[in-house]
Design a protein around this nucleic acid. Structure first.
Lengths: 125, 125
DNA sequence: TCTCAAGGTCTACATTTTAGACCGTATAAA
DNA sequence: TTTATACGGTCTAAAATGTAGACCTTGAGA
């Protein structure tokens, strides 16, 4: 009864648009999910396998938030067994464009960062 | 004694460069700190004021991580009273370039997202 | 003497995330 | 027939993480 998830609290807009958007996106899992959906539609368990180390609860919660914010759609096929498909919306796709830049940056500078970590360690004696 | 902060655990590189980098950056505060330092050098308490709602501990911890990863420098002036200045490194600056794209995206699409949230709420009856 | 500021650390508490059991239906294997 | 699997989740208890705020040392100003 204590657990009121974000869905009911942070619905209205917040003072800073950037924080409003990035707080949601920069939450450890959202990005990974969006990237996983970039090539195409995936089902719940397929997403779990794709991402590898996300818990069911966090996947479920994060998918809800992404759906709520209009990044993805959730389509339920009332077959047996139940089938649920998640896919990027145009908004979700458009978001991935600037993200690709970031991913490219990360890829390019990863070695530099690892080197910095080692150097830092060394400097700490 | 239970608290072993990340500084000692996640030093070596991880399988996926993108996750390695984004896990650190996408942690609620790192981005905000980097953005705050974009215009120029700031001191610890100035950063606190600039960001507004970060705790001292998280600011301290996050600054250490950013320094460790080579995004910022920490310069101690052993004056009285003590002065400590934080500034972006070239790596930190270069990171902000792709970030600007993301920030611009957030700014542009913020209204769409807020609208999606309202519509979602409505659809949930 | 008291208060403030600098740049943090420490502790106790609150929030968030995790692992893993569980649910109901249906298919395939033993 | 019992067991095992898969689907898409939810629920609970425990672990991890984040928070607020007291505290620390040195020195200046009232």
């Amino acid at each position: 009864m204590t657990a009121i998830t974000a869905s009911e609290e942070i619905v209205l807009e917040q003072p800073c648009p950037i924080r409003d958007v990035l707080d949601r996106i920069g939450d450890q899992w959202s990005l990974l999910i969006l990237e996983a959906l970039a090539p195409g539609t995936l089902r719940f368990n397929a997403l779990m396998r794709e991402i590898g180390d996300i818990s069911k609860q966090m996947l479920s919660r994060t998918l809800k938030q992404l759906e709520q914010d209009g990044f993805i759609t959730r389509t339920l096929y009332p077959e047996v067994p139940l089938r649920v498909e998640y896919a990027l919306t145009p908004l979700g796709h458009s978001f991935l464009e600037p993200m690709q830049q970031l991913v490219a940056w990360a890829d390019t500078h990863h070695r530099t960062i690892v080197a910095a970590r080692l150097q830092y360690q060394a400097s700490q004696t």
